[in-house]
Amino acid sequence: MTATPLVTLENVDKHFGELHVLRGIDLSVERGEVVVVIGPSGSGKSTLCRTINRLETIDGGAITIDGVPLPEEGRGLARLRSDVGMVFQSFNLFAHKTVLQNVTIGPIKVRKKSKAAAEKRALELLDRVGIANQANKYPAQLSGGQQQRVAIARALAMEPKVLMFDEPTSALDPEMVQEVLDVMTSLAAEGMTMIVVTHEMGFARRAANRVVFMADGEIVEQAAPDDFFANPSSQRAKDFLSKILSH
């Protein structure tokens, strides 16, 4: 095994105007690790997630993926992004393309796979997330939970080194949350490297190797889920957990 972590962030800083959203973030994620990032709204966790494939630029510090610094622009950045899968809160499926086309467009246009090979793989992935029978529908014809599962299949089709989830269940009706979490849990169990920003504490307990707690743009503490939920060391984490676990 190589010792280099898959994703590293070193002293990362980010401002939105006056607001200092990320303050000196240091984080490294090993291969096969599932890191769940939690914290109150506005703590910078989504921004953190989005800096890792440069959907947000950073003002200071350094990010590497598989030992390679994140390129600033152009083809190098596009190539790197193709290795970092992203699942969004609002699914962001391509509205003018069918489910199958959504899943095959990356492999065909970026990975230069043949259409036949891409479709074969896409149908396997859609089958795996339980929606192979909807392959020819358009995103708007699916429920939120189904759309998010397509989005996961779309990200997986690129065979990414790491998958990022930016609050993947926050826009879903309650009865659809579980079907998405089930897919994520099975991915985690198979050894996919994942960084998950979420409010689903059950998922964090069940599937995470490590919980990262953020507040006010800083990583306040990080620990194995059992330790973190049983004995949070910081006052801010205690406050946060008491608010979400008390009812």
Binding site: A78, R81, V84, F88, S90, N92, F94, K109, V110
Partner: peptide, 16 residues
């Protein structure tokens, strides 16, 4: 904007 971000995150270039 989400459509553009999703396309970027797949590794599509600006022109694509």
């Amino acid at each position: 904007l989400g459509q553009v971000e999703a396309a970027r995150s797949l590794g599509l270039t600006f022109t694509q």
